Amino acid sequence: MTTDTLEKTAETAENWFSDDAATFGDRLAAAREAAGLSQADLAQRLGVKTKVIEHWEADAKEPRANRLQMLAGMLGVSLMWLLTGEGDGVDMPDETAAETAQVKGVLAEIRELRTAMTAMTGRLGRLEKKLRQGLDQSAA
């Protein structure tokens, strides 16, 4: 890497959610995702409709002051960070963490499929047994 590239990378990491790099909606979405909440989960906890969260994250509307304080507390970030990008917020996304999350998701899906297949195998065995019993009774 060149010196310019290293400086830009460091600057991006340093100002990842600064006022210049992200909006309130971007910071809200990042904090919500870092907390492991869906828009619907956050809406339910705040007592608002999911559409309201969507509007906030799209920067189409802004929350009232009382909701801002609740958001900061629920998401574990400072109110200042949520508003300006300065202060205690979420860490810059780590590609390794994203890849790990994706792998965990795939593993969870594999476990679900394996459980479903085991249940289907048992069901198939029971049906086969009934069919054999039916054939044995009709042959006798």
Rank of each mutant, 00 (worst) to 15 (best):
L71T: 04
V48P: 01
D88E: 13
D19M: 14
T96P: 00
G47A: 11
M120N: 07
S38V: 13
E109F: 01
K129G: 02
L135M: 15
D4C: 02
K51A: 12
H55T: 08
Q69V: 15
L113M: 13
G134R: 09
K8I: 09
N15W: 07
A40W: 07
E7M: 01
D88T: 11
K61P: 00
T9D: 09
D19R: 14
K130C: 06
A29V: 00
E128I: 03
S38Q: 07
A30G: 03
A43C: 06
M1R: 12
P93N: 09
R45K: 15
I110V: 15
D19P: 07
I53S: 01
Q44H: 06
T23P: 02
A58M: 09
K49Y: 12
E11P: 00
Q137E: 15
M1V: 10
T118I: 10
Q102D: 11
E33A: 15
K61L: 07
R111E: 15
K104W: 03
A58G: 14
L68H: 03
G105Q: 04
R132T: 09
M1T: 01
R45I: 08
E128D: 10
E62F: 12
D91P: 05
E14Y: 09
D4I: 11
S78T: 10
A116Q: 08
R27Y: 04
L83W: 02
T100D: 12
A140E: 05
D88F: 10
Q44T: 05
M120Q: 07
D136H: 12
M70S: 13
L83T: 05
R45A: 02
T100P: 01
D91G: 08
A101N: 05
T3F: 04
A98W: 03
T96K: 13
M92I: 14
L82W: 04
V90C: 04
A139F: 08
E86I: 08
L71S: 02
R123F: 02
